[in-house]
Write a protein that binds this DNA or RNA. Structure first.
Lengths: 213, 213
DNA sequence: CCCATTTTAGAGTTGACATTCTAATTTCAC
DNA sequence: GTGAAATTAGAATGTCAACTCTAAAATGGG
C-alpha cells in the first residue's frame, strides 16, 4: 500500500522534514533544472542526513518532482491571485505588470517562471508532469480571466472584450517574457511584451486613452 | 592546439560525419533536452560506431552543445528570414503567423522552440551557451524589426510605430506561445498571443481596420 | 604508390547518482 | 511507560554515462 501522493500518516516532525525536502528540491530544480539536481544536493540543501528520508517520503525522484510541481503551483498562485483578483482598472493591471517585473529584477533576472522552466524541461518527457503543469496553468489562466472579467463588469472594458482569450494571451506573453528575461538577464523583453499586451487590452478601454507611443 | 570551435582540417568524409553528429544531437536534445541526451544516444542516431568519433570532432559534450546551438540558430533563421524580409502588409504578417502555427501543428505540438528549449535549460547553468543564445535571439529580433521597419517604410504603419520594441515584444510573445503549445499540446495559446500582438501592431495601421473583436 | 594525417574501432576507466537495505532511534497514542 | 509506527542513520549496490586510450583502417597530396 504505497500511497503515491505521499500523504500518509505524517507526524508533525515528519511533515516538517517532508516540507523541507520539497522546498529545497524546488529551489534547486528551479536554479539548475530537474535533471541537474541530484538527490544528494537535495539532502544537503534540506539538511537531512540520509537518503532514506527522501525515499521514505517519496518513492522516487519522479514522485518528488510531482510534489515540487504542486509546491511551485501553490507558490505562484499565492503570489498572483491577490494581484489579479482586484483588477478594477488599468492602474491595477499596470501594478500587476510592475510587480512581476520587479520580482524578476529582484532576483537578478535569474531563473524564469517556476512553472515555465519545469514545463520546458518536462512537457515532452514526462506526460504526468505535463498534465499537472497544464492544470496549474489552467488555474492561473482562470485567475487572470476572472480579473479581466471583473474589469469588464466594472465597466472598464467594453462588451466586445473577450476575457478568456485575452487572459490566455496575457499569460502566454508573460511566459515568453520570463523566458527572455532569464536569457537576456534584463527585463526589457518582459516589459515590452506586457506593455504591448496591455495596450492590446486598452483597445477595449471604455475611457479612451492613447497607448504609450 | 585543440581547435575549440571544431573547425580544423576536415576531409569531406570528416565533415559529413561531423554534420551527422550535430544534426542527430540537435534532434535528440530538442526532443528530450540536453541533459537527458546521452552520447551513446547520439552515436546511435548519427550512425557512428564509436565514441571516439564524437570526441574526435568535439572535445566534450559542452562543445557539442555549442555546435548544436549554432546549428539550431541557422535552422530557425533559415525558416524565419524569408517570411520576415517580405513583410509589406498585414496579410504577410498574418501569413507569418499562420506558418508558425502550422509548423507546430505539423509536429503535433511536441517540442517548443528549438532555441527556446535550449535557452530554458541552459541560460542559468552555462554562461557561454546563454550568450550564444542571446546572440541568436538578437539576430532573430533584427529580422523581425527589419520586417516591421519595411512595413513602416511602405506606409503600412504610421510614424509612431516603434519597430524595435514591437519586434522584441513579438518575438517574446512567440516564445511564450511555443512554450505553451508544447505544454498544452494545442496551438490555441500560440494563436491567441500572436493574434493579440498583431492586433496591437494594427493600432499603427495607416489603413484603419477594426481588430478581430 | 607512399607517407603523413585524418578517421574509425572498440575495449576500458572513472566517477557519479539513483536507489536499497538493515538496523537504530524517536514519536505518539493509550 | 510501553509498544507499534514513524523517522532517521549510514553503509552498500548497481547502473549508467562521460570520457580515454591504443591501435587499426582509410584518405589524399606528392
Amino acid at each position: 500500500m504505497k500511497s503515491d501522493t505521499g500523504t500518509r500518516q505524517l507526524t508533525a516532525k515528519g511533515r516538517a522534514t517532508r516540507d523541507r525536502i520539497v522546498a529545497a528540491a524546488a529551489g534547486l530544480m528551479y536554479e539548475r533544472g530537474v535533471a541537474a539536481t541530484t538527490t544528494e544536493d537535495i539532502q544537503r540543501a534540506a539538511e537531512v542526513k540520509s537518503p532514506s528520508q527522501l525515499y521514505h517520503y517519496f518513492g522516487d525522484k519522479r514522485t518528488l518532482v510531482q510534489a515540487v510541481i504542486q509546491y511551485q503551483t501553490e507558490q505562484v498562485l499565492a503570489f498572483q491571485r491577490p494581484l489579479l483578483s482586484r483588477l478594477d482598472s488599468f492602474e491595477s493591471l499596470q501594478a500587476w505588470r510592475d510587480a512581476v517585473v520587479e520580482v524578476q529584477r529582484a532576483r537578478n533576472c535569474e531563473g524564469g517562471c517556476p512553472l515555465g522552466s519545469l514545463a520546458a524541461e518536462l512537457s515532452d518527457v514526462d506526460p504526468g508532469a505535463r498534465e499537472q503543469l497544464m492544470a496549474a496553468y489552467g488555474q492561473w489562466e482562470d485567475a487572470v480571466r476572472d480579473g479581466l472579467a471583473s474589469m469588464r463588469e466594472r465597466g472598464e472594458l467594453d462588451a466586445a472584450a473577450d476575457p478568456g482569450r485575452l487572459a490566455l494571451a496575457l499569460l502566454t506573453a508573460l511566459q515568453g517574457g520570463l523566458l527572455m528575461t532569464q536569457n537576456r538577464r534584463d527585463t526589457l523583453a518582459l516589459e515590452a511584451v506586457l506593455d504591448a499586451m496591455i495596450d492590446r487590452i486598452r483597445i477595449h478601454a471604455v475611457t479612451q486613452r492613447a497607448p504609450a507611443s
